[in-house]
Simulated assay, not measured.
Amino acid sequence: MTDKVLVAYGTTNGSTARIAEAVADVLRKDGLAVDTLPARSVPSVSPYDAVVIGGGLYAGRWHKDARRFVRRHGRALTERPLWLFSSGPLDATASERDIPPVPGVRKTMARLDARDHVTFGGCLEEGAKGWVAGMILRSGKGGDFRDFTAIEAWAERVAAELRNGA
């Protein structure tokens, strides 16, 4: 049985952080001890028996903090169960079908032997930081496309794997 799980995330405007919190909440309800932290603030993964890392997608790439996290902790991540998630599409596609990981995340999955990856819809709302975010919002393409039912269902699958000795 896993004792302690880290849910780390890379986010710019907080949308991916909220997804990470939802994942952590499900794992906690399943009796696991969980820390939810920004990826850039994790000094070591050694206190954790399993790791979930998520990153927002920006121009087809995972958030820089998530990319740096998997590079910095790569060797240690191969020694424990690992799951990845992405958040990003600003439309309903993530709820309608499975979206494969972007190329960089696909390489990370293979290199670190991740158990699973899922892409969730993203969220970009008024007040978001960044020039590109402002452009997207001005073009009318913002909104909240996160599906918390799907997020919780995925987290329940992760919890079940951990319960069964992942």
Rank of each mutant, 00 (worst) to 15 (best):
T2A: 08
T2Y: 01
K4P: 00
K4N: 10
K4W: 07
A8S: 14
Y9R: 04
Y9M: 03
T11F: 14
T11H: 10
T12C: 01
G14M: 06
A17D: 05
A17P: 06
I19C: 13
I19P: 11
E21T: 14
K29W: 13
K29M: 15
A33N: 01
A33V: 09
T36N: 01
L37G: 00
P47V: 06
Y48N: 00
Y48R: 06
Y48I: 04
G54K: 05
G55M: 13
A59N: 07
G60M: 03
G60A: 06
H63C: 06
K64T: 14
R67M: 10
V70E: 00
V70A: 06
R71G: 12
R72W: 02
R72C: 00
H73K: 09
R80A: 09
P81M: 04
L82D: 03
F85D: 02
F85M: 03
S86Y: 03
S86I: 05
G88P: 03
P89G: 09
A92R: 12
A92K: 12
A94F: 15
P100Q: 02
P101R: 05
P101D: 03
V102Q: 10
V102H: 02
M109T: 01
M109A: 00
A110L: 13
R111L: 15
D113Y: 03
A114I: 04
A114P: 09
R115F: 01
H117V: 02
F120Y: 11
F120C: 05
C123D: 07
L124N: 02
E126Q: 11
V132C: 05
V132Q: 08
M135K: 13
M135C: 07
M135Y: 01
I136G: 09
L137P: 11
S139D: 09
G140K: 00
G143E: 11
D144V: 11
F145G: 02
R146E: 02
D147W: 03
F148D: 08
F148H: 10
A150W: 06
A150G: 10
A150F: 06
A150Y: 04
I151M: 06
I151T: 02
I151E: 08
A153M: 04
A153F: 03
A155S: 12
E156F: 04
R157F: 00
V158H: 03
R163F: 08
R163H: 10
G165D: 01
A166R: 13
